[in-house]
Simulated assay, not measured.
Amino acid sequence: MDWSTAIPDAPHALEEVLLATAHIRTYTGVQHLTNASGFFFRRDAQLFLVTNLHVLHDEPSGHFPDRIEIALHTSAEDLSKIAIFSIPLFAGGVALWRKAMDTAGLVDITVIEISLDRLPEQTLLRAFDVSHLEAADDDVAIGDGLSIVGFPLGFHDTVHYLAVARGASIASAYGVRFQRQGYFLTDARTHRGSSGSPVLRRRRMVSSGRPLRAWQLLGVHSTRMDMRTRDVIEDESLGLNCAWYADILLVLTAS
């Protein structure tokens, strides 16, 4: 696959970030369990699907799928053409997804490698890489605008199978582990199914001709944050979310 190939001209400009985002459906056998979001990440010659760990394995809720499905575009001229791609989560009883720990414990991000030779012919996708984790001389600060691109409640453009984006901003001190956990906060309006969405910030300085380079990958959306002491009648939800710092991908995708 030629990772540098640009999307051919289309009647309407298409953000390449939408081809880097995937709708995940989890299964046990043929039984559909949940919907979630994810995105593609390239490390050298390897391609990974990134999502939350709780999407693939969650002991508190008893969620233990054995495979997932994603939809892949197969035509640049007709985005309605897709192929359903099944990814097993175990081989010989051994988990194929990776997990990582930090100083606070288990990180709610996982990756699973995708075999390039298994992809359908003419697969059209884009992937973030290590360069998207770099600040590129742009300061990141509280209040900065963000986009969280995914499939809330499984919702998407069902004709062209493209994700939707929620606008957000950084809601806690960026670079500081909120309450010593490996995440920062955002203030997006999110729903179930958004788990695993990339949390993106548009760069001020962008290399011409490299549309995906316009985005900096700051984190991976995980869960909504609320207060247990909140009066559910008198007080609205905080509307805050946890976004795990994306630099853990350097650990998860290491050879």
Rank of each mutant, 00 (worst) to 15 (best):
A173P: 00
R98L: 05
E77I: 00
L125C: 10
A168I: 03
D102A: 13
S61L: 02
I114W: 06
E59W: 00
L125D: 07
V164A: 12
L133H: 04
L125G: 09
I112W: 07
L89R: 09
L146H: 08
L153V: 04
A91R: 15
L89T: 07
T110S: 15
I87E: 11
I70R: 06
T158Q: 13
G150Q: 06
K99R: 13
S131G: 02
L116W: 08
Y161E: 13
G167I: 01
W97P: 01
H63K: 12
I82F: 04
E113G: 07
T74V: 15
R126F: 14
T74G: 04
H73M: 11
E134W: 00
G93N: 09
H73L: 11
D102G: 13
G143V: 02
E69L: 13
I84H: 14
T158P: 00
D144H: 14
P88V: 08
P65I: 09
V111Y: 10
D117N: 15
S80V: 00
H63A: 03
A135R: 12
T110A: 15
L72Y: 06
F155A: 12
A163S: 15
P60I: 02
I82N: 08
V107T: 11
P152F: 02
H132A: 11
Q122S: 15
H63T: 04
E69D: 14
F151K: 03
V55Q: 06
K81L: 14
I68C: 09
I142C: 04
V159F: 09
V140P: 05
D58C: 10
A100M: 03
H160T: 04
Q122R: 13
L146F: 05
G92M: 11
P88L: 06
S147F: 12
S169Y: 02
P88I: 09
I112M: 12
L124T: 09
I112D: 10
L162A: 05
K99P: 02
V94C: 11
V107C: 12
D157F: 03
G167F: 00
H156G: 10
E77G: 11
A165I: 00
T123D: 03
L89M: 08
H63P: 03
L124S: 01
R126G: 12
G105S: 09
E113S: 13
I142Y: 00
S172G: 01
D139V: 09
T103V: 13
L79R: 10
V176A: 12
S80G: 13
V159P: 00
L119F: 09
P65E: 10
D58W: 11
L162P: 00
F90N: 07
A127S: 12
V140S: 02
I82Y: 05
V176E: 11
I87S: 12
A95N: 09
Y174C: 04
T158F: 14
S131F: 01
S86P: 06
F64Q: 09
S172W: 07
V130F: 06
D137K: 03
F90A: 06
V107Q: 06
L133D: 01
E69K: 15
A127T: 05
I142F: 01
A135N: 08
P152K: 05
Y174R: 01
D138F: 02
